[in-house]
Simulated assay, not measured.
Amino acid sequence: MAPHFNMQILRPIKNTDFAALKQIAIESGHGFTSLPVDDNLLQDKISRSENSFSKQVETPFDEGYLFVLEDTKTNEIVGTTAIEAAVGTQVPLYHYHLGKTVHHSSTLNVYNTVEILSMCNDYTGRSEICTLFLREQYRKGLAGRFLSRIRFAFMADQSRRFSDTVIAEMRGVSDAQGHSPFWQWLQEHFFSIEFPQADHLVGLGDKVFISELMPKYPIYANLLSPEAQAVIGHVHEKTKPALRLLQKEGFEHRGYVDLFDAGPTIEARLENIRTVQESYIVSVEIVDSINCGQTYAISNQKLNDFRAVFTDNVLFDEKAEILKINRKEAQALNLENADTVRIFAL
């Protein structure tokens, strides 16, 4: 039974969360391709996640783990966060890689370095963090940071289910109508469909048109419109806080950008991610009341019964490697005395 006090608990999505997921899909709007407003697709996402959590896995393949953040006071779903175990294994994952080519003539004494965009599938098989969304009224406080970082704790505990490299595709620059300057150029020359439509098709998993219509040869960046060149590798204004958070975790941009809006894809090795390196596995001691003022994210290290919360109703004794935890939080995490948890300071 859910405890009757205000706390936010992260858990795997269930079939009964469909209506809440649909509401979040509606609120997330343009450019949030991983949650399309389509009943069948959302239902598939839930079933796929339930199957992934219950599946025996030796090496990552095509699993998708979708979590929801539930407010215990209202029983409302207030946010989502997800991990794809191995991208591009079922449907190809395309990127542009920004490289350089040199045009040199010693006869004419001309030396030009030109940036080129080459289409590739270099991130096939990598794990991807995605689908982080928090409803507007819950965006103050630590919930957003918790949703972003807790995934790394889960991945560290279930590392054989994931690749040793983790990527994140960041949303590129587009205007209020969802139009991207980068897409504008591609559309004029190759596609003849609007950006929101192309984006929606990708969200539906229909990527065949990419390989059919995308230019097969590298594109010289200096041939693009100035507006398109200006946004390569840049993120949407609203995505800047998320990018900063991941850069703090050790994610870097290695020149890979999205095919449609040219937003950067960033990467890190799982073992080098700050949250993984700075988290502790400790055993718990359940107490009736405690408060230390320092907020910790705590996960119960389970798979199907995975639960995580963030709270300051704990006291962490680093020397003894013991976490004293309030009874209510312990119940929310399905913990008993001497169980182990993974914690990190939020």
Rank of each mutant, 00 (worst) to 15 (best):
N6A: 10
N6W: 04
Q8H: 13
L10F: 06
R11M: 10
P12D: 09
P12G: 06
T16V: 05
A19T: 09
L21E: 00
K22A: 07
I24S: 08
A25E: 02
I26L: 13
E27G: 07
S34L: 08
S34F: 05
L35P: 08
D39N: 14
I46Q: 06
R48Q: 03
K55L: 13
Q56M: 13
V57S: 02
E58W: 06
T59D: 01
F61R: 08
G64W: 00
V68C: 14
L69R: 06
K73T: 10
N75S: 13
E76C: 02
E76R: 05
G79N: 05
T81G: 10
A85E: 01
T89V: 08
Q90W: 00
V91T: 05
Y96H: 09
H97K: 13
L98T: 11
L98F: 02
H104Q: 08
S105E: 04
L108Y: 14
Y111C: 14
Y111E: 07
N112E: 13
N121S: 09
D122M: 06
Y123Q: 13
E128N: 08
E128R: 07
C130T: 15
T131Q: 04
L134S: 10
R139P: 02
G144E: 12
L147S: 12
S148F: 05
S148W: 07
R149L: 12
M155D: 04
D157W: 06
R160F: 12
R161G: 11
T165A: 12
E169P: 12
G172P: 06
V173W: 04
V173G: 01
S174C: 15
D175W: 04
A176H: 14
G178F: 12
G178P: 05
L186M: 15
E188S: 14
P196D: 15
H200L: 14
V202R: 11
G203W: 02
L204T: 00
K207Q: 01
K207R: 05
V208E: 04
I210D: 00
S211P: 00
P218W: 01
I219V: 10
Y220A: 10
Y220K: 06
Y220F: 12
S225P: 01
A228M: 00
I232N: 00
I232H: 00
G233W: 08
H236I: 11
K238H: 13
K238W: 02
A242L: 08
L243N: 09
G250N: 09
G250F: 07
A262N: 04
R269M: 14
E271C: 13
V276D: 12
Y280A: 11
V284T: 13
E285D: 07
V287K: 05
I290K: 06
C292T: 11
G293W: 07
T295A: 04
Y296D: 00
N304Q: 11
A308L: 06
V309Y: 02
F310Q: 09
N313K: 15
N313I: 01
N313Q: 15
D317V: 02
K319H: 05
I322P: 06
A330M: 09
E336Q: 15
T340M: 10
I343E: 05
